[in-house]
Nucleic acid binder design. Structure first.
Lengths: 189, 189
DNA sequence: CCATAAACAGACAGACCTGTCTGTAAAGTG
DNA sequence: CACTTTACAGACAGGTCTGTCTGTTTATGG
């Protein structure tokens, strides 16, 4: 029986864990399943990640960085701010539909994490605050009054979160469409 | 050693489980802890509830009925619709603060429940749809055009959900205040 | 007073969990 | 070829989980 050694166990683990955490939740997936699906040994896992919690942090950090890139591109684009916002909601809609309405990875993870996982909680806060900043900047591109722009940005943040959450709970897309319509009204006064 | 028999084991279990499920999440609490804190025997538990899942359903049903009562009272009150809505957000704010920003029990439970728990998922949908209807009715009291009232009711629903969710994630109250301000604007055009 | 229902106590099975450990095999590097 | 790094294989400990089972005790209604 030949034993082939595949490189990049760390990345394979992160990739696999990401899919599983997203689909079934952090608490619903075990290390054993992750390493089995990733095709690695348990010893390899603990060589790269000191614990399951640290793997979760790495996952959240990874998807945070990907979304940060997208947002930078969108902010710098030459479209009208309202069009950018609409495109952003379009992306959310496509994401939710194609992933089976699994909702926001951060909120889902936060629902099962308390003060006993400070690293995870910190990643969630970091991402959420960053989302808030992004939406404030986007609002600022459409609204001259900076105080009003911050207020609208915060509203967009809350609305976006609710759309994601309720699309997940109801397995329906209308919350996103309702949110997009409301957001559009805020950006063209 | 005297063995005292306490009546109403079923209710004590439901009460205790409700607190624990709410504080630490459905998946974070085990039967053993519930019966220990409730002061009952395991056999007593399984005499009343066939499974942990059925206990969770009973819990969600119980808090759903309590909130339905509150909503009926609020809808029937003689205040102005905008005042009712403000009062509703006030209640949400107080609830979140006093409970340590634990968020929405339904959304939290939904984050760790998939198609393997159909009863739980059904309870969540039922409550969320009922919340949507409540807010549509409240909107209808302020907005004559029934189509517009439904649209605003749906927006209120999404906004309310986002406020609850992000207050939980950030452990801050401003999402609720932002949502209340936005909601107020919708109700006085 | 006796029969029955409801609650108690707690052991047990069987599965799963995280994390540790020992040892081996393959690849890269000098 | 020797040496080091990386990955594989899998047993193991120690714990938790749900759910079942046996048997005992208390209260209540007829």
């Amino acid at each position: 029986m030949r034993k082939l050694r595949k490189p990049n166990a760390k990345e394979r683990i992160l990739e696999t864990a990401g899919e599983l955490f997203f689909q079934r939740g952090y608490s619903g997936v075990g290390i054993n399943e992750i390493i089995e699906k990733a095709g690695t040994a348990k010893a390899s896992f603990y060589q790269h990640y000191p614990s399951k919690e640290s793997l979760c942090e790495a996952w959240l950090r990874a998807i945070h960085e990907r979304s940060e890139e997208e947002r930078s591109l969108l902010l710098a684009a030459s479209e009208a701010p309202a069009a950018k916002l609409a495109a952003w909601f379009d992306r959310l809609e496509e994401f939710l539909v194609s992933s089976g309405f699994r909702g926001c990875p951060y909120s889902n993870t936060g629902a099962v994490s308390d003060e006993s996982c400070p690293g995870i909680v910190a990643e969630i806060r970091r991402h959420k605050e960053s989302t808030r900043v992004f939406l404030r900047r986007l609002a600022a591109q459409a609204i001259p009054d900076s105080q009003r722009a911050d207020e609208i940005g915060d509203r967009l943040f809350v609305l976006y979160s609710g759309a994601t959450s309720e699309a997940q709970n109801l397995k329906e897309i209308w919350p996103v469409q309702v949110a997009r319509a409301a957001a559009a009204e805020w950006l063209e006064p």
